[in-house]
Amino acid sequence: MLNKKKKKSVPAISTASLPDIVFMLLFFFMVATKMKEVTLKVEIKRPFASFATKLDDTNPIKTVYVGKPIASMQSTYGTESRIQINDVIASDVSGLVQAVEDWREEIGDANIPKLTVLLKIDKNTKMGVVNDIKKTLRDREQYKIAYSSSKGDDAEEAN
């Protein structure tokens, strides 16, 4: 029995369907990919919250980033927490005033009450900066905000 099998040569496996499989995977990733809209110049690790909801993306969302500047930016911006708006690191919180004006102009008058400002803030930031941002937004009557966070418990904190 063994001998018989050995004599027969194993037929080559057809690889004709390989492209199909690969294409299927490719399409999946193409659909699932969301391109980053800005280059981050600050490092952001999201904080954990036991409960968080998905943002309703039918309404306009604009993002403010806060964190320590990334290594290549530290020579110009230092290592203290900085605020990044759009593609630039703002010198201080007052840069937010202009940004809110720009966003409002961009989305149009009708959408202004729907605008949510998403705060993507590094978890090791001190609340002082966060509070300055909140105060500025409140002064500009931009009341809808959201704190970006990961769902679940912080693994590092558990120890």
Binding site: P19, V22, F23, L25, L26, F29, M30, A32, T33, K34, M35, K36, A49, F51, A52, T53, K54, L55, D57, T116, L118, K134, L137, R138, Q142, Y143, K144, I145, A146, Y147, S148, S149, S150, K151
Partner: peptide
């Protein structure tokens, strides 16, 4: 196809935007 696949694999971030919504006073 593999080349393209690898490109998308690398660039994909499953960045689900979870957030806590609040309204400032």
């Amino acid at each position: 196809a593999f080349l393209l696949l690898v490109f998308f694999l690398v660039t994909t971030t499953f960045d689900s935007d979870y957030a806590i919504e609040r309204r400032l006073p």
